[in-house]
Every structure is written in structure tokens, then in C-alpha cells.
Design a protein around this nucleic acid. Structure first.
Lengths: 180, 180
DNA sequence: CATGTTTGTAAGTGTGCACTCACAAACAAA
DNA sequence: TTTGTTTGTGAGTGCACACTTACAAACATG
């Protein structure tokens, strides 16, 4: 007995976010998650209720980290105006997704929303983030919508690798996006 | 001998876009595509070079249809200003993705961009659409960027089913989006 | 030390699916 | 009719992977 089950769960969830982010739910065997976490496949199945339960729990962990980062970013805002707070939140988010795992996991989760449990987890994640942005920044609906629209644009930029494309259309899409 | 191979390929590609759109590349067996197209699995493998070749070809067909719709929409613009042309393009796109297959296929394609051939197909698709939007509307980089940012926001709205969520945050994200 | 509980694994089992091959039927041209 | 080509399929093959089971070792408690 080396570690408690609860501590293992945390380790496994961190590994799961990273590993699922690359190839998605259906293409990643749980052996890959187990290997990344340094334990056996069988134990992962004991810690979580099936591959789907693991993925849904990883989605929860992913959105937890995003929400925490945005909340912390809001604290560092230069002023109290909606614009300044939204800008600080955007900056904190840009820093967070520099390693791409959290961003790619969101893309993977949105791709398997035909599974109801995943759809609910995605809704719950955005519910938490969006309600916080809305209430903390005191921003208008249009400002909140724009905040998330440009967040989703980052998904395209990263998945399609547009930072590496020097053509005019790609530069237009990536202009001003903070270091993805 | 009932049909030519080329005509079959078109039938299969239409079926492929619809079927892959639901569950994505890895979760849909090519038997499902074959069944939707009304032919045997073995013949699909003869018509396309493996499941990946089928998916990449379907991506091409998907972006072809999007580009055609946007080009046709631009022709129906009320005036010559960038704003009017972009609005007409947006309206044409909104109509096109009412059935959701083309939108969901894009989401699925972006989720498997870890496969280089898919990443290149996605880039090629957006290259075609974005260069057309940029040159036809004579819009600024910022306008083009905004056009695609709100297009990507539609991906979130549809995959998470936000039209069905009556809460304040969800109404903010879906406000003004044309009938998804 | 004895007994119980929790952590951990090795070694299966069954199934779904990508891909192949041998073969058949429709059509064309001689 | 014969020969060749294209369209089409049924019946496999082999492998990857989700999930289980039986078992072992670490720790706690009396």
C-alpha cells in the first residue's frame, strides 16, 4: 500500500487530461492513461467506473482548472471595468492553455457530446465558467458572448496549427491572439 | 453493374459526412458508412484507400459544400460594403448548417487533427473558405477574424446543446445566433 | 501474532472492427 | 459466343482493447 486511493485518483485524472487530449476518447486506450499515471490498467478500472466514468471525471478536473485560473486572473485585473476584468481573465486563460492539454481536452470532449454524460459534463463546465465571467466582470451579454467566441477561435487555431501558416488568411485569424 | 464507381463515390461521401458527424472518426465503423450508402463494406474499401482516405475525402466534400454555400450567399448580398457581404455570407452559412451534419463533421475533423492527413485537410478547407471571405468581402483582418470566431462559437452552442438551456449564461452565448 | 482491509497486479476473456480475398454477376467488344 | 473489364459481395482473419477475476502484498488493529 503505497498511496491512498484518493491521491491516486488525482494522479490518474491529471494523466487522463493529458492523454485524452492528444487522440480523444475513442482512440486512447485506458492502458495509455494507466501507463502515464504509473499504475496498472486494472487499478484504473477499480478507481473509476469504466472508461466513460474516467473521461467524465477528467472533464470535471479540466474545467476546474480553467475556472480556477480565470478566477485568479480576475483578481489581478488592473481596474474594475468589465473590459479590464475580461482582459485579465483572457490573459490568465491564455497562460493556462499554453501547454495545450486543457484546450485540446475541451475539443475532444465537445467531439463526443453524442454521449449524454459527456454533454452534461461539458455543459456543467461552461456553466461554471460562464456564470463566473458574467457575474464577476459585470459584462454585457454581448461582451460575454465575444469572450467565448474568441476562446473557441483558439480551438481552431491550435487544432489546425494556424500559427505555423504564414499565409494572409491564417495571419488574419491568429492576429492578436495571446501566444497560443 | 448498376452504377459507375465515380457516382458511387459521391453517394458514399454524402453518407460519410452524415455518419462521421454523429460519433466521429474512431467511433464509427465503416460498416455504418457502407450501410448508409447502401453498399457493402468491402466495396467502400475498394472505392477509398482505407478508413482514413474515406474520412479525408469526406472532409473535402464537407468544405466544398460550405465554400459553395458562402459563395452563393455573397451573391445575394444587399450591397457592396464588407458588413453587408459578411452578413449575407453568415446567413448562408447559418442556413446550410441547419441540419447540423456539416457543422458536426467540422468538429469531428478538428478533433482528429493529430492525424497529419486530417490536419492538412482541415487547413485546406479553411484556407479555401477564409481566402474567399477575405477577398470577396474586402473585409479587414479583424472583421474576418470575428466572422470565424462566431462561426466557431456555433460549434460550442450545438455540441453542448445550449439552445435548450434556459439559464442566463447560455442565453448570453446564443444571443443573436441565427437559428442553430 | 492473527485477522481484516485497502492497495495493487498478472493474466485472462470476449467482442468489435479494419482490412483482405476469392468469387460472382453485369456490361463491353471481338 | 468468348474474352476481358468493371462493379459488387460473403465470408473470413487477425488484432486491439474494454472489462473481469483471482491472487498477492502492504498496512492497520486487536
Amino acid at each position: 500500500m503505497r498511496s491512498t486511493a484518493e491521491a491516486r485518483r488525482v494522479t490518474v485524472l491529471n494523466a487522463a487530461v493529458s492523454v485524452f487530449a492528444r487522440a480523444g476518447f475513442h482512440a486512447t486506450p485506458v492502458t495509455a492513461v494507466a501507463a502515464a499515471a504509473g499504475i496498472s490498467e486494472a487499478y484504473v478500472f477499480r478507481l473509476f467506473s469504466g472508461k466513460l466514468g474516467l473521461f467524465v471525471a477528467a472533464a470535471g478536473a479540466c474545467f476546474d482548472r480553467i475556472a480556477d485560473a480565470i478566477e485568479a486572473g480576475a483578481e489581478r485585473a488592473g481596474g474594475d471595468s468589465p473590459e479590464e476584468i475580461l482582459d485579465a481573465m483572457g490573459g490568465a486563460y491564455a497562460e493556462l492553455i499554453a501547454d495545450r492539454d486543457l484546450l485540446l481536452f475541451q475539443v475532444q470532449a465537445q467531439a463526443v457530446t453524442d454521449i449524454p454524460e459527456v454533454a452534461e459534463a461539458v455543459r456543467a463546465g461552461y456553466r461554471r465558467v460562464a456564470t463566473f465571467v458574467q457575474s464577476r466582470a459585470q459584462a454585457s451579454d454581448a461582451q460575454v458572448q465575444q469572450f467565448f467566441a474568441y476562446g473557441q477561435l483558439c480551438h481552431l487555431i491550435v487544432t489546425a496549427g494556424l500559427e505555423q501558416v504564414p499565409e494572409s488568411w491564417a495571419r488574419a485569424l491568429t492576429a492578436g491572439i495571446r501566444h497560443p
